[in-house]
Amino acid sequence: MDHRPQAWGRPRDDVYGAYDASFMNPNGPNQATQSPIVTGTSVVAIKFSEGVVIAADNLASYGSLARFTDVKRLRTFADSTVIGFGGDVSDMQYLDRHLTSLAIDESYSAPSLDSDAGGPPKARLNAANLHKYLAKLLYARRSKFDPLWNHLLVAGLDDDDKPFLAAADLLGTTFSAPSLATGFGSMLAQPIMRRFAPDEEAAARLTREQAVDVVKQCMKVLFYRDARSLDSYSIAVVTKDGVDLKENEKLENQSWAFAERIRGYGTQTA
C-alpha cells in the first residue's frame, strides 16, 4: 500500500492502474464548436410596405438524417421582433435562453414609456438594437475562436418604425437588404424574392398578402430542391401591431408535374 498523503482517497493503482492526470494539464486544447452537429436549414424573409415576413421550416437535421421534425426555428422577442435561426440547433437554444434572460432584464430595467396608454409595454430594444447586440455577440465569440454556429435573420422595426431586416452570421458579418435568405435559401429563394423586391422602393410597395405569397412560394421551392428541408414550417409577419406567428403551417398546392419535363440528369435517352 501507498501511504503517502498524495495517494489518500485515490483509486488504488494495483486495482485501477496508474491515475491519468493529463486532463488537468492546462496545455491541451480546449474543445470549442468546430462544426455544427444538429442543424436547421434555410431561413427566408422579405420586407413589405408596413413590416416583414419571415419563415423557416420545422426540421432539425443530424447530417443527412431528418432527426427532429418539430423544432421551431423562429423566435419572437418582446412581441416586436422575430429572429430566424439557421445552423446549429444547440447554439440556437443557447441564444434562445440568452435572449429570454435579456428580455426579462429589459422588462424590469426599462419601465415602459407608454404603459399608461393601456397597451402592452413598448420594448426598448427594437429589432435594429437586437440585431446589433446579436452581431456583437457573434463577433465576440468568433474572436474567441469559439463561434456560435448560426446564421441569423432579424426581422422587425427600426428606430423610425420602418420595416427592418438584417442578417448576422457566425463570423459576425452583418448585412441588410429588402429580402434575405440563409443557407440554401440564398441560392434558391433569394432570386425569387429579388424578382418581387429588387430594391427598397419596390419592397415598400409590396402588400402583406403579396409578401406572404412570395415567402410561401420560396418555402415550396426549397422543399422541392433542398434535401434537408421539411414541408412543415413556421411563418411570422411582423408589423407595428405586433407579431403574427404561425408555427405549424403545411406546404399547400405541391405539384411535382414539373419533374417529368426535366431532361439531362438521369439515365433517359430521349
Binding site: Q6, D13, Y16, D20
Partner: peptide, 13 residues
C-alpha cells in the same frame, strides 16, 4: 500522483 513510472500510460482518462 503517479506511483508506478512503468505504468505511467493513460489507463483511463
Amino acid at each position: 500522483f503517479s506511483q508506478n513510472p512503468v505504468m505511467n500510460g493513460p489507463n483511463y482518462s
